[in-house]
C-alpha cells in the first residue's frame, strides 16, 4: 500500500505542488492548512512522513514540530521542514526553545529552504522513508 505522507502548509500553492509531487511519485498525500489541523490529522492517520512549513497562522510549524516530538506515539514519524526561513534561523530558534523549556528536541529528518527543487524534495522524502 502506498505510504501516507502528510503535507502541512497554509499556502494552497505549496500544498498543490507537494501533493502532486507525492502522488506522481507513488505516495498517498494528506494535507492540512496549519499546525493545529496538522496535529489532528497526524494523530488520526499516523502518516509515514510529515512535510511541513515553519511559518503558519494559528499554530506555527515550530510549535507543531515540538508537539510531535514530545508525543510518544508520533515522535518517530520523520519530519521534513520546508520553509523560506533560513535553516540557521530555524535551528537557532530550536536551540533557544530547548534551553528555555529545558528539553532536547531531536532535529528534523531534513530541512529544505524554499524555493525547494522537486528533485531535492523527492530525494529528502526517499531518504527519510528508508
Amino acid at each position: 500500500m502506498a505510504k501516507r505522507v502528510l503535507v502541512v502548509d497554509d499556502e494552497l500553492d505549496m500544498r498543490i505542488f507537494v501533493t502532486t509531487l507525492l502522488e506522481t511519485s507513488g505516495y498517498k498525500p494528506l494535507s492540512a492548512v496549519d499546525g493545529k489541523e496538522g496535529l489532528e490529522i497526524a494523530r488520526q492517520k499516523k502518516p509515514s512522513l510529515i512535510i511541513m512549513d515553519v511559518m503558519m497562522p494559528r499554530e506555527s510549524g515550530i510549535n507543531m514540530y515540538r508537539e510531535l516530538k514530545n508525543d510518544p506515539e508520533m515522535k518517530n514519524i520523520p519530519v521534513i521542514m520546508v520553509s523560506a526561513l533560513s535553516k540557521k534561523t530555524f535551528f537557532h530558534s530550536q536551540k533557544v526553545l530547548d534551553e528555555y523549556k529545558g528539553e532536547k528536541i531531536s532535529e528534523p529528518a531534513a530541512y529544505i529552504e524554499k524555493p525547494a527543487e522537486p528533485n531535492e524534495l523527492l530525494e529528502a522524502i526517499e531518504n527519510s522513508l528508508k
Partner: peptide, 30 residues
C-alpha cells in the same frame, strides 16, 4: 521572493506533470 519562487517553481512542476500525463485539469491547476 523565496515564497514566490517556490510558487512559480511548484506551479511549473505541476504543469509539467499534467502535460506529461495528459492530465489537463492538473496542468490547469499548475
Amino acid at each position: 521572493m523565496k515564497n514566490i519562487l517556490e510558487g512559480l517553481q511548484g506551479g511549473a512542476y505541476v504543469v509539467d506533470e499534467g502535460i506529461k500525463d495528459g492530465d489537463m485539469e492538473l496542468a490547469g491547476k499548475g
